[in-house]
Amino acid sequence: MAKLRSISSQSLDEDEVIEDRKHCRKYSVCGVGNKAIFVPGKIRNRVRYIPFSAVTHVFKRVAYSNADGRGMLAPVLYMVIRYDDGREWQYIFKNMNEADRMLKDISEAAPNIYTMSPAGVEKEKREEELRKKMESKELSEKAQKAIRALQRDEVCLKKSPGLYENLSGMAKIKRKLDLIKPQYKAIAFILLLAGIVGFAVSLVLRLMGLMASGPAVITMLVCAMLIILMINSKVLPGPVKNKRNVDRDYNRALHDMEHFLGGFESYHLPARYSHPVVIEMLKRIIREERAETIDEALEVLKEDLKACDSTKVVSREEYQEIVTVKPMFTVANYM
């Protein structure tokens, strides 16, 4: 085993850290022990570590490989560890769920470590202070009436959770396809075609004896890799997940929601935005006295979601809310 080295100014006894690594829980290239977080070196995984005593924050950071995050250039998820009063270590995580499990593990193993960024911690404290202030404040009669109406809407909506979950899920899929630029699809198709043609030509030339075995095998391998890469890029339309089918499935989900809500005499939200998370966000806006009616709160929420991008600092709860409902608004063009 390679010698375990601390990247922090603090360290553990050699026997202690070896034993901790032996029983650490593995998450991608990282590991969470009972006394330290293990991170990869230049070659091997989990050969460096940071003691819990040196860590202040562990959080996710989402960045884009270009300014707008469109097309084949997708969002990039980083796991960031902040230690030694300001130093940071970060690494790309491919799986969001695995990153969430690692954060949960750390929060249980070391409750004193924040599982959000310093800015997120400060924002959460301000929001908690605001929540306490709102609870002690009396709302206007109009605002109270709006909240009661939203609570009734939520009861109606939760009678059929499959409908709003399907609508939200289809909105996410539709949004992803809408973000893919046509030129990226054309480039991916050309590369796929080039891979197929290159593979076929190399194979034929080799069988005819017009191409040496070595170059033929290398060419076919490169072409096969290109074909697999383009097929798995999620840029090219498939037999099921293509724009026409996704638009049809989204419209069907929206129609099912409209039909379901038509059975209630007084329901206040548009079907396209009907989700319990939207209702909770609207109630919060009214309690914050940023609006008094449901329509006013809905307009405020639209502006809030438009302003949300990768540069905004949000808490974990807000992030989950945004990724759940923002596609529902973007595919409807915030109408």
Rank of each mutant, 00 (worst) to 15 (best):
V62Q: 06
E135T: 03
V240W: 06
H275E: 04
D13W: 07
F93A: 06
L193C: 04
R21D: 04
V325W: 11
I180W: 03
I18R: 15
M220V: 01
L77T: 13
D304A: 08
K60A: 12
Y114M: 05
P118V: 08
I106Q: 05
T56D: 04
I196K: 01
R126L: 12
M220L: 00
S140P: 01
V325L: 13
E165N: 10
K302P: 12
I37T: 09
S53A: 13
V155Y: 03
S11K: 05
L163F: 06
K326Y: 06
P239T: 15
N45W: 07
N34M: 05
C156R: 09
Y267A: 04
Q144A: 00
L179A: 10
V323M: 13
D295W: 02
I43Q: 05
R101K: 12
P215R: 09
M79Q: 13
A63I: 07
D100S: 09
L205Q: 14
D105L: 07
R131H: 08
I18W: 09
V201I: 15
K159V: 00
K283R: 06
H57I: 02
V32H: 05
K312A: 10
E138F: 06
L191S: 14
M230P: 01
P276R: 14
K137G: 03
S8T: 03
L226E: 09
Y78D: 08
G209F: 11
L12Y: 09
N251M: 15
D153F: 01
L269T: 14
F38G: 05
H57L: 02
R272L: 06
D309N: 15
E165T: 11
V17Y: 10
N45A: 11
M72T: 14
D85I: 05
D20G: 13
V240M: 10
L139H: 05
L229G: 08
T311C: 01
Q320L: 12
E280M: 12
N242I: 12
G214L: 04
M225H: 01
M79V: 15
G71V: 11
M211L: 15
Y49W: 10
M281G: 06
V331Y: 03
Q10I: 04
A63F: 00
V222E: 00
M102E: 15
G120A: 05
Y49M: 06
R152I: 02
E165L: 14
S310T: 11
K234V: 00
E299W: 01
I81F: 02
K185C: 04
V246C: 09
R248D: 04
A146C: 02
M257T: 13
K312N: 10
I113S: 02
V325H: 07
S213R: 06
